[in-house]
Amino acid sequence: MKKSVMNKPIAVALVSSVSLLPLVAAAPVLQPAGQSAGAASSVATPNITLDPVHSMAVFRIQHLGAGFFWGRFNELAGTVAWPLDGSAAPVFDVTVQVNKVDTGSEKLDGNLQGPNFFNQAEFPTITFKSKGATKAGDNRWTVTGDLTLRGVTKSIEADCTMVGIGKGPTGQKVGFECLFEINRADFGMKWGIDAPKGALGNSVKMVIALEGDVAKAKE
């Protein structure tokens, strides 16, 4: 009987490859241990909807060990739960769109959205959800919450101030400003810290300026 010339090599190739399957097949379902499923829902009912035009997140980082440069995220959304009489601390739920990063340089914006930094393709948003707060002064609180950046969730503390209550054509508005500092390496954003060494700093200062529309009380 004539033997087929194709059976053996293809069979070996198939068998060898199939033996690798369990290794590769396991991969998509694994998640790193540090990633939580998501923060718990806010304790209070949100009564303030953030105005995306008048809200922004601004960041500051050191470049080459020299000057600080600033960038901002132009689009964020979310809610705040806060009684206007100030009887309780605000509860924030804020989502920032990574693809709206703006440094004034188109090329740098692209680099920041790339995998070396925010990795917009895989992690399109940055979120912050309040977990608790302690009063730190008049209209000022130290807010603890979960910051999720690049898929990593870490608890942070933000210094938040209610900066004003005003009235616009559409109704009442409230403003907050929150400041905090993070080490970007904690969120897996390590490029430029050790390699290339000192290209960009590890510490990132964030200023979150929020303005929201107060929901009208139900009749």
């Binding site: 290794l23 590769v24 694994l30 998640q31 540090g34 895989e122 898929g151 969120f187 897996g188």
Partner: peptide, 12 residues
């Protein structure tokens, strides 16, 4: 392929 103890870097 595996979960590494103490590794909290993101899965990319």
């Amino acid at each position: 392929i595996i979960a590494i103890e103490g590794d909290d870097a993101p899965f990319e």
